[in-house]
Nucleic acid binder design. Structure first.
Length: 587
RNA sequence: GCGUUCGUAGCUCAGCUGGAUAGAGCGACGGACUUCGAAUCCGUAGGUCGCAGGUUCGACUCCUGUCGGACGCACCA
């Protein structure tokens, strides 16, 4: 299909050149790549069309007149004749593809192991940093959005052929960590997560919340936390031991959540290892005059000329801050594994931070600074207000998955399908993840999400389970065929038989799958892929109702349609995988 | 105050690099299960695309201004 489009652009460019020659006009014909191709609003108008407005202006003729003239020229083109027909439609030149050959090509492509693997980013190295939790509490709904964005984007980039590194930058040091440690010392009595029957991250998170109680009891609690941070930095053995123990608990719990939701990483970076990294770079920048030393001794950079403010990079006591560390890690990562692109999946409240960071790296002379990208995403708001730990209104990630899974299980039982699905709990969990991930992915990243529990828990309409359901229905047809039902086995698949408008609508949709992958990869937008999957599900939903597959009396048509269903199923499997929506044979 | 960003149907959202009557889902109303699972399908109602200018043959899409919301403007992360 992609090849077909490129071919038609060439044909139209050729026709325009021919038309210019016929008219004896001195203007230059457009390059094939510059020819605008679009999809007509209604399928009856054709498979794609070319607006004639720009050429009308160029050639000083009415658009409709140009369309008619070009149609006549294209009609004489032997390559065009093989691929379809071009018809003038007002100011547009519309193309109707030859359905038989195109259907055969799509079914063959969908049957290959590389279906959906486009190669548009072949040879490119992309590093994706995402999730990046703190080690003092469990993951919440906001992390779920971050995780699914990062994971899905990574899979999409991988499908486009990129070589990937998925990095999780763990914030395991700082005052907030010390607070949970202090509270644990006061209230923990040496207990372990196992003893309290809690996941490690929930266990530690409990003590982080208990710090509020500690503050009421002890007015010096904040000071003690500061003192503990200092002791940690100086390597106090007792503090370090407790820190390590609690960090291990949290990491173990968080990794469970990752495993459960299908998120994985190539490697983990710990801030405790990297927080000193950028110092040397900053001092070098000071020597080369990129930065300057303030009167009080702090090292800063003036960014007013690019519309940013002066930013401190080293405190007056010489210690590094957040951005110093990010400078260091970006450089270290590039030295370690020269990437063509680095994508930070981080909330949009840090947009300014990344603008500053990228500008600084540019000034330090790193050409690759222009390859850095902040994939910013909006907050997940609750109807009651902002999600912040301190306000106690967070939605815990594990609890949420549990809750949705319980509802899914109830739904399966309500439909009396416990027997059909096999492992009820496992299927319910997959439906829950499908629902949650699709809900979080469908909205474009920059927009804030108003978390509506009812909507996110619903399984009907424009949801993940709707897509899963269509995948399951396709599977069901194939399963019945394999069980010996229907006429397909008696016939021979002939793609040319799939020429009806209904068949064609579905085949065109399948053909667009690689384009959807590329669009999502190029724009760093998993939502584009989520949208595609919904469209595919809707098209299949309409098609299978009106087009009997196995029961079709014409055995060859049955066999052909079965091939189409197989292609649909393969597309669901591949596409849903990229969107972190579990594929289900039955639900 | 300055900066960034969002503002599309009652609600939640799509709308590709500007292009042919602005699309889904939920909710409302009306239909379709002796026929491959109705978590489905079909139909009806509902929008001056926040507002005002501008660029263009053509603007939901680009530019300027304006109103409203969110976020940011630390030697915190």
């Amino acid at each position: 299909m992609v090849e077909t489009k490129a071919a038609w652009k060439r044909i139209v460019a050729r026709a325009i050149a021919e038309y210019i020659k016929e008219k004896g006009s001195p203007v230059q014909a457009p390059a094939p790549e510059s020819v605008v191709l679009e999809r007509p609003p209604k399928p009856e108008l054709g498979d794609f069309g070319f607006p004639m407005f720009p050429y009308a202006k160029l050639l000083r003729a009415a658009p409709a007149q140009v369309a008619a003239a070009l149609a006549a020229i294209v009609a004489r083109d032997p390559e065009a004749a093989r691929l379809g027909a071009a018809l003038p439609e007002g100011p547009y030149l519309n193309v109707r593809l030859a359905r038989g050959p195109e259907a055969a090509a799509v079914l063959a492509a969908a049957a290959s192991a590389s279906w959906g693997r486009t190669g548009s980013l072949a040879g490119k190295r992309v590093l994706v940093e995402f999730s990046s939790p703190n080690t003092n509490k469990p993951l919440h709904l906001g992390h779920l959005r971050n995780n699914v964005l990062g994971e899905s984007l990574s899979r999409i980039l991988g499908a486009a052929g990129a070589e990937l590194r998925k990095v999780n930058h763990i914030n395991d040091r700082g005052i907030h960590i010390c607070k949970s440690m202090l509270a644990y010392e006061r209230y923990g009595e040496g207990r372990t997560p196992a003893q309290e029957g809690l996941k490690g991250d929930h266990f530690v998170g409990k003590y982080y919340v208990l710090f509020n109680k500690l503050k009421e009891e002890d007015p010096k609690a904040e000071e003690k936390a500061q003192a503990m941070l200092l002791a940690w930095e100086q390597g106090d053995p007792a503090v370090r031991a407790l820190w390590q123990k609690m960090k291990d608990w949290v990491m173990e719990g968080i990794k469970e959540t990752y495993a459960r939701t299908g998120v994985s990483f190539t490697l983990y970076d710990f801030e405790s290892d990297t927080y000193d990294l950028g110092k040397r770079e900053v001092l070098r920048g000071l020597e080369s005059g990129v930065f300057f030393r303030q009167e009080d001794g702090a090292v800063s950079v003036k960014l007013e000329d690019v519309g940013l403010d002066t930013k401190v990079l080293l405190r007056k006591d010489g210690t590094s801050i957040y951005i110093t560390q990010d400078i260091g890690t970006a450089i270290a990562r590039h030295e370690d594994w020269p990437y063509d692109r680095l994508v930070y999946v981080v909330g949009n409240e840090q947009k300014y931070h990344f603008q500053v960071l990228f500008e600084i790296l540019k000034r330090l002379g790193f050409g690759w600074a222009s390859d850095l990208h902040h994939l910013a995403y909006g907050m997940v708001n609750l109807p009651s207000g902002r999600m912040k730990t301190r306000e106690g209104t967070v939605v815990d990630a594990d609890d949420l998955v549990d809750e949705v899974a319980a509802l899914a299980a109830k739904e399966i039982e309500a439909k009396g399908r416990e027997g059909a699905v096999g492992d009820l709990a496992a299927v319910a969990e997959k439906i829950a993840l499908g629902a949650l991930h699709y809900y979080l992915l469908q909205t474009s990243p920059m927009k804030d999400i108003l978390y509506d529990p009812e909507l996110s828990l619903s399984f009907t309409g424009d949801t993940g389970p709707y897509i899963q359901y269509m995948g399951a229905r396709a599977s069901s047809i194939i399963r019945k065929h394999e069980g010996g039902e229907g006429n397909a086995a008696k016939g021979k698949a002939e793609p040319a038989l799939l020429g009806s408008d209904a068949d064609w609508a579905l085949i065109s949709r399948l053909a667009a799958f690689p384009e959807a992958v590329d669009a999502a990869a190029a724009g760093l937008e998993p939502s584009a892929l989520a949208g595609y999957l919904h469209d595919l599900a809707a098209d299949f939903g309409t098609w299978y109702r009106d087009n009997p597959v196995l029961a079709n009396p014409d055995a060859n048509l049955a066999a052909s349609r079965l091939e189409l269903v197989r292609a649909v199923r393969r597309t669901f499997e591949a596409g849903m995988g990229l969107a972190c929506i579990p594929f289900l044979e039955s639900m």
